[in-house]
Simulated assay, not measured.
Amino acid sequence: MKTQQALNYERIASAICFIRENYREQPGLEQIAEHIHVSPFHFQRLFHEWAGITPKQFLQYLNIGYAKKILKETHATLFDTACELGLSGTSRLYDLFINIEGMTPGEYKNGGQDLDINYSFEDTPFGSIIVASTGKGVCHMAFADEGEEKALANLQSLFPNAAYKQTLDTKQQNALSVFNQDWSKLQEIKLHLRGTEFQLKVWETLLKVPAGGLTTYADLAAKSGYEGACRAVGTAIGKNPVAFLIPCHRVIKATGEIGNYHWGEVRKNAIIGWEAAHL
C-alpha cells in the first residue's frame, strides 16, 4: 500500500506534467486541481508544501523560460512573444519579466546594451576568481575553475551586448579586500544586482549572516519573510551572482551537513573553516 507521501508526490508530478504540457493555455488553479482530482484549496496547499512556491508561480517560471528563448533566438516582437505564451498582451509580459527577472523584456532582449562592465581576474585563498563591476557596483563574482576564457564567456552570456574592458577598478578592489581578512571596508562595497524581489530579499538576508556564522535554509527562509519556502530559497541561493560577498557558503542543512555549493563542497568547507579560524 502506498504511503500518503508517495500519493502526494504522484499528484504533484501529475500536476507538473499537466502544467508543462498546457502552459500556453495558461491553466488556472481550478483546472489543474480538477486534473488530479482534488479541491483547488487542497491542491494549492499541497503544491506549496512540496515546492515552496504556488502553482501560479511555477507557471510563471515556465512562461519566463519560454519567453526568454523566443526573445533570444528569434526576431519576434514583444507583442508576438506575449501572444505565443497565451498572455493577453505586452503589459502582462512586462509584469512577468519584472516579477521573475527583475528587468523589463526589452532590457532582457537588448542583453545589457549601453552597459559598460569592467572585469579582472584575481587569485584568492580558494582559487582564481573573476570579478566584474558597472558604474553602480560589483555585478558578478565567480570562481574561474574552468579557466579565464570560460569564466569570461559565462559573464558575457549574462550581458551579451555590454561593452567589456579588462581593468581592476576601485569597486572591485574594495570587494576583493575581504580575501585579505579585511572586513573593515564592507560598507564601501557596492553591489549592482539584477534579480527578482524574492531573490533580492533572500540575498539581502544572507548579507546579514556574519563572517564565521552559519544559518540553515529553514532559518533563512523565515528571516527572509518566506517561512517554509526552503526549496524556493535554495533556488534563489543557487542564483547568487556574487560568490563569497553574498555568503551562500554560510547556509547549511538543518541536520548539520554542509550541503551543496555551486563551486564545490570542498571549497565550501574550506571557506567556512577559513572564516572561523580568522575570527
Rank of each mutant, 00 (worst) to 15 (best):
L168E: 04
A229F: 06
Q156G: 03
E146L: 14
G228N: 07
G234C: 10
P105C: 11
G135S: 09
L168K: 08
N110V: 14
K190C: 09
Q166T: 00
L152T: 00
Q113R: 15
D123E: 15
F143E: 09
A142Q: 13
S128H: 12
W183P: 07
E107R: 12
V138H: 02
M103I: 13
T124I: 10
N161K: 08
A162I: 01
K201S: 10
V202T: 03
G195A: 02
Q181C: 09
Y108Q: 11
N161A: 04
K190L: 10
N180H: 14
K150G: 01
F179W: 05
A175P: 06
G238P: 01
T205K: 13
A153S: 13
Y108V: 07
L176P: 06
G238N: 10
C230I: 10
L200A: 04
N174Y: 12
T215C: 04
I129P: 00
G111N: 08
K201N: 09
P160N: 02
Y217T: 09
I100H: 02
T124W: 09
N161C: 10
F126G: 10
Y94P: 00
Y226V: 12
F97K: 01
D114N: 15
A151M: 03
A222P: 09
E107D: 15
D219Y: 09
L168H: 01
A236V: 01
V202W: 05
Y226N: 13
I100C: 13
L168T: 08
T104C: 11
V178K: 03
Q181V: 08
K185D: 01
Q156W: 12
N154D: 14
K165M: 10
Q172E: 08
S128Q: 15
G112S: 14
M141D: 06
L158P: 00
K201L: 11
F143W: 08
T124G: 13
A151V: 05
Q187C: 02
